[in-house]
């Protein structure tokens, strides 16, 4: 059974490229525009990994991860947070929310695939 990865990012192009890369590698991918959208698409179901941007409209990455981790099905779901060098302050808040893996934007698709495979293989 393929492993499911959810990507939440307000940039459609990032979603597309990451989604495409992961799908090609054999993952199921759920794309969401922001935290709110991600939560409604999850609907309490377990996913194997979540990739989330920090800065998003409606619901930012930190609040999203907090809510995600509060769901019984995703209490222990690994989260990769996307951030920029300018976002060190957010990193602390994110660590508290339960996002321990961080990736710096910009990144190459291959780097993303590599990071994902460390946590979950397809």
């Amino acid at each position: 059974m393929a492993k499911t990865v959810l990507i939440a990012d307000d940039s459609a192009s990032i979603r597309q490229v990451v989604g495409m890369t992961l799908k090609n590698a054999g993952y199921e991918v759920i794309e969401a525009e922001d935290g709110k959208d991600a939560l409604s698409k999850l609907d309490g179901q377990k996913v194997h990994l979540v990739i989330s941007d920090v800065n998003m409209p409606n619901m930012d990455g930190i609040s999203f991860v907090k809510e995600l981790k509060a769901q019984p099905a995703n209490k222990f779901t690994p989260v990769i947070m996307l951030t920029t060098e300018a976002g060190e302050d957010k990193k602390q808040a994110g660590q508290m929310a339960g996002a321990k893996a961080w990736m710096v934007k910009p990144f190459q698709p291959a780097q993303m695939l590599d990071a994902v495979s460390k946590l979950v293989l397809p």
């Binding site: 940039s11 192009s13 990032i14 941007d53 990144f107 190459q108």
Partner: peptide
Amino acid sequence: FRAAHTIKGSAGLFGLDHIV
């Protein structure tokens, strides 16, 4: 800020380093 930030983040995916 968000506009600059998002463009930079996405540009990297396409190897558009000069934009980054």
